[in-house]
C-alpha cells in the first residue's frame, strides 16, 4: 500500500567519509534500503570514503582492528563472549585485519549483504546516485577513471547541496 503519511521521507542524501568496511556498509545499506522503499537516494563519498569507489580498493576494504574500541572477540565465528575485548596489539599483527575482514565478509554474505562493488551496482541499478567528492579527489590525486563505473559524477560541496534539495542529509 502506498505510504500516505505527508511527513514520509521522500529523498535522502547520505555522506560517507570513512573507508573501513564498517564505515562504508552503513551508507550502502541505508541507500539501498531507501530505494527499496521508493525513496530517492544519493550517496556522497568523501575523504577515505573514496576507498569504496576506487577500482583498486573497492573489494579490499578492511575492518579497523587497531584503535577500534568497539571491536570485540565475539565476532560470531570465534565464539567468545561479546564482552571479551579485542586487544589492539593483536589487531596490529600483520594479517589479523585481513582475517577479521574475511570473517566479517563471510557473515555478511550469509545475510545476503553483497560485496561493495556489487552493492554499488545494485544501488545504481535501483536508481540511486553515487557521487565522489571533488576536493577529496584532488587531494588524493584521483581521476574519474580510477573509480568504478557506477559513479555518476564528481561534485563540489555546493553541487552536492544542490542535488540534495528537498532531501534529508545523513552523515554516517
Amino acid at each position: 500500500m502506498s505510504n500516505n503519511n505527508p511527513d514520509a521521507i521522500k529523498k535522502v542524501s547520505i555522506i560517507c567519509a570513512n573507508g573501513s568496511l564498517e564505515g562504508v556498509y552503513p551508507s550502502l545499506i541505508m541507500a539501498n534500503g531507501a530505494r527499496m522503499d521508493g525513496i530517492e537516494a544519493n550517496i556522497f563519498f568523501t575523504f577515505f570514503g573514496l576507498n569504496a569507489l576506487m577500482k583498486k580498493t573497492v573489494n579490499s576494504l578492511k575492518v579497523a582492528t587497531v584503535g577500534n574500541s568497539a571491536l570485540n572477540m565475539a565476532m560470531p565465528m570465534m565464539g567468545f563472549p561479546i564482552t571479551t575485548p579485542f586487544p589492539t596489539l593483536l589487531g596490529a599483527i600483520p594479517g589479523v585485519s585481513n582475517l577479521a575482514s574475511w570473517m566479517m565478509k563471510n557473515e555478511m554474505e550469509k545475510l545476503d549483504i553483497p560485496p561493495v562493488d556489487e552493492f554499488l551496482e545494485m544501488i545504481s541499478d535501483a536508481g540511486g546516485k553515487i557521487y565522489a567528492c571533488k576536493l577529496a579527489m584532488d587531494m588524493f590525486k584521483l581521476k574519474i577513471d580510477d573509480l568504478v563505473d557506477h559513479v555518476d559524477d564528481v561534485l563540489t560541496v555546493g553541487q552536492f547541496y544542490e542535488i540534495s534539495a528537498g532531501s534529508s542529509i545523513i552523515f554516517t
Binding site: G38, D125, A126, G127
Partner: peptide, 11 residues
C-alpha cells in the same frame, strides 16, 4: 535489478 524496479516502481 533495473527491470525489477521498472516493473514495480516506487518500492
Amino acid at each position: 535489478t533495473k527491470e525489477l524496479y521498472a516493473l514495480f516502481p516506487g518500492g
